[in-house]
Design a binder for these strands. Structure first.
Lengths: 337, 337
DNA sequence: TTCAGTTGAGTTACCGGTATCGTTTTCCTA
DNA sequence: TAGGAAAACGATACCGGTAACTCAACTGAA
């Protein structure tokens, strides 16, 4: 590492070099009014010559304004659903001149809390947090902070501030009804940590209600303590089929788990949906290459992220915002139910 | 939104309430020395009672120190490889009290440049950028900034500052040699935008050299303008097999594309590796559920991210750091070559 | 010619902490 | 008990910009 230590060029130096006051230089940089063409050119010339860099820290401090940071907390990047949502958020924020400050919480509430506390100390312009079940501590911090907050992912009809999400219960219910309509009766569910993945649990509950309403039964559930991925689906299916006989169909937390189930079924020569029906959620990329088109629920993850960013940006700029933005899902019939 | 507008409690108020000077209160908050037990308790009591929040913006400004932000630029979150790397980075940074400020560049150099410029204005503690081929503008900014920089992903033996990465060329060469050794001769490559995905190109070049050194030929390459995913691999394989006859084996940019190829082969009743050999890269989660174990190269993506974070943290704290950290890959023989 | 309005630019105070140095008090030892 | 070191705390200046105000010069209409 070289030890370049020349101090940052400051506005006062630029101003002096250009033969004007700091204030005039500041006005030029902020594209305000109150200076002549000629002065502007002189100042800008010095800005470039000296390599002046605007010190946003000083600005935020001096003008008592907030930063251009937006805190974004998501539970897990190994889950591609959230990776997509994050990408949607980041694109929008970035193109509006804001920066995403990331927290990957691993579904750990305490770690979200401490992150919220730390990030608030930096006067963020806004916060986007995944989930709606905050700790008491987190809720208090969010309320205290005079900052727009978007609760993402789970639709919350009485949000802390703003909410952008999906009605997971309804999407689960819709899938459950379809499965019953197609003649399945003895069902099971495969997913991951219910205690923290609140949205997946909502889907499960909606699905379960639909099964019961339709006269079916939920014979078994398998809940892994892991990220909802391919191998988890494969493994849990194996376990489940060996312990519970005569299952008609399995509902998975997402398409990746369902793909695992489908590949397991294939490896055992089970016909789908004849011997076993399989339903996923999310319409994830994997479903495009499976031997059969997966029965699933399409969700525009990228769009969801973008909508969340739109909401927070509007709130930051003081524009009117819908408190609650519901993102649609679309049923994909597929061939596995 | 409620219009709670009570001003933030400031240190001076806490100090007054506790009957001490600002300075003493500051000392207490920073766990320094120079105050009694009793004073500490009085101050802390007021901190909690008034809900004081430390204004890091003012601190960074006043003490002329940098922030706790580390800029992290990655090309694409749809590519789960980078999602994993990012998660590794974030975990380490977060547990050390630093925050990741994200940029998803979509492989667009200009957008990285403008992000670098903006994020530098916030006095970041360090920067982690993916890739080693920066624009002239970007290089200049990075050099000018008196901030540690890690170039991630592509190993760079003469880095701008620090480098943490993989020797992609070697990993491609190793795979190429294996393919030749197993008797494949007529080969093809499937990947995505070569112009910008520098690392994938390095793998391709290493692989190509190995093929040529071993007496094989590279008959065809198919380069998609898309993120390297399942369907891209499926589609490109279909296209390639219809335009180029008698291929022995295909080398894919990563496992997800290879999985697409494998599923296509299965759908056409081709035997693998008898009719067509398939090799991937990355040992991604999908390979765990495929009908055959994929021949691939294992890379510890999470660890790579963590190492990058470790390097930048050491540099931030002025500790000695290896300029270049090479992350190993491990060959996975699999059953598809 | 006069005077109000506009334009270009400078002056001053301040944002909320911390570094630095100075002062007082406490405590220990000769 | 004096004296000096250490501990506890306070006063002041400053970090690098901008808000708000002031002021001079110029413009144009009465």
């Amino acid at each position: 590492m070289s030890s370049r230590k020349r101090a940052r060029v400051k506005l006062a130096e630029v101003a002096e070099a250009a033969g004007v006051s700091k204030m005039t230089a500041s006005r030029v940089l902020n594209n305000g009014k109150g200076f002549s063409e000629e002065t502007r050119d002189r100042v800008m010339a010095e800005v470039h010559r000296l390599g002046y860099m605007h010190d946003r820290m000083a600005v935020a401090f001096s003008s008592h304004s907030s930063s251009t940071f937006v805190g974004v907390s998501i539970p897990d990047l190994g889950n591609e659903v959230f990776a997509q949502v994050l990408e949607g958020i980041e694109r929008r924020l970035n193109s509006s001149g804001y920066q995403a400050v990331l927290c990957v919480s691993q579904y750990d509430t305490a770690s979200v809390d401490s992150w919220i506390e730390r990030v608030l100390q930096w006067r963020p312009a806004g916060l986007i947090v995944t989930g709606r079940n905050h700790s008491e501590q987190g809720r208090k911090l969010l309320r205290q902070a005079d900052v727009p907050v978007v609760e993402l992912w789970d639709l919350n009809t009485s949000p802390l501030d703003l909410s952008v999400g999906i009605n997971h219960y309804d999407s689960g219910y819709a899938m459950g009804r379809f499965m019953v309509e197609r003649g399945h009766r003895t069902m099971a569910y495969i997913g991951t940590h219910h205690d923290t993945a609140h949205s997946a649990k909502s889907r499960f509950q909606g699905w379960q209600s639909a099964i019961q309403d339709g006269g079916g039964t939920v014979e078994d559930t398998y809940v892994l303590k892991d990220t909802p991925g391919f191998y988890g689906g494969y493994y849990a299916t194996e376990q489940m089929l060996s312990r519970t006989a005569d299952l008609d169909a399995i509902y998975y937390q997402n398409d990746n788990m369902a793909a695992g189930g489908l590949m397991f079924a294939q490896s055992r020569g089970l016909s789908v949906p004849g011997d076993l029906g399989i339903a996923g959620w999310g319409d994830l990329p994997i479903s495009a290459i499976l031997p059969q088109r997966l029965t699933t629920m399409h969700v525009a993850h990228l769009k969801l992220g973008q909508k969340a960013a739109d909401s927070i940006l509007a709130a930051i700029k003081g524009k009117p915002v819908e408190e609650v933005t519901s993102i649609d899902f679309r049923f994909v019939p597929g061939e596995t139910i």
